[in-house]
């Protein structure tokens, strides 16, 4: 908003419209990062193949986080890869969004009681859309991405979240040393 923003000029309709245009442009050219973790990654790839073809929504995979603005967490995030997920998220270009795909990424899913699994990727990075399923079918992922598009295009819901979700325990530490009281 540097072009139009000025102390003297009141907040007027032009800024709002430009906002809408920018949001529209952003929402129509989401470039996800190629980062498959587990089972959901195969369904994520399937969403970009002829049957479902997410390419027609203007989404193209980028191999480098610097060129991407969307991260699809497709699979179980465990304690060993959690720091890498966080680093990749920090490397994404602003503005950036995260879609959590599948039960494991949402809240640990069937493995959530295990010693090596982070209970949901939202303990590490802020998540915009959660897609349930184990794994979700490609169309379900697409519905999540369309939901994200609505979120971006809607000005009131514009991206404003803390960069790292706060948890009451150390996500990266080994069990017994993460400051959590086990539920037995």
């Amino acid at each position: 908003m540097g072009l139009l923003g000025s102390e003297a000029r009141p907040q007027n309709i032009i800024v709002g419209t430009l906002d809408d245009v920018i949001n529209l442009a952003r929402s129509r050219s989401l470039w996800p990062l190629t980062f498959g973790i587990a089972c959901c990654a195969i369904e994520m790839m399937a969403a970009w193949t002829p049957k479902v073809d997410a390419d027609r929504l203007g989404m193209f995979f980028r191999n480098s986080p610097r060129q991407a603005d969307l991260m699809i967490i497709s699979g179980t995030v465990n304690k060993k890869i959690a720091s890498r997920v966080k680093r990749l998220y920090e490397q994404l270009a602003e503005p950036k969004w995260v879609v959590s795909m599948g039960a494991c990424a949402n809240q640990g899913g069937p493995f959530r009681q295990g010693y090596s699994v982070v209970e949901g990727v939202d303990k590490i990075v802020p998540v915009d859309v959660y897609v349930p399923g184990c794994p979700p079918r490609p169309e379900a992922l697409l519905q999540g991405l369309l939901l994200l598009r609505d979120k971006i295009a809607d000005r009131k819901l514009r991206y404003q979240q803390p960069r790292v979700a706060l948890t009451d325990y150390d996500v990266f530490a080994e069990p017994g040393k993460d400051g959590r009281v086990p539920v037995l």
Partner: peptide, 24 residues
């Protein structure tokens, strides 16, 4: 090999619960 290098527990021992905490 599977867990991180700095871990000290051997989680598949029966003295640990599923979450890797020591059973009282």
């Amino acid at each position: 090999i599977l867990t991180e290098d700095h871990w000290t527990i051997h989680p598949l021992q029966k003295r640990y619960d599923t979450g890797g905490y020591e059973l009282p």
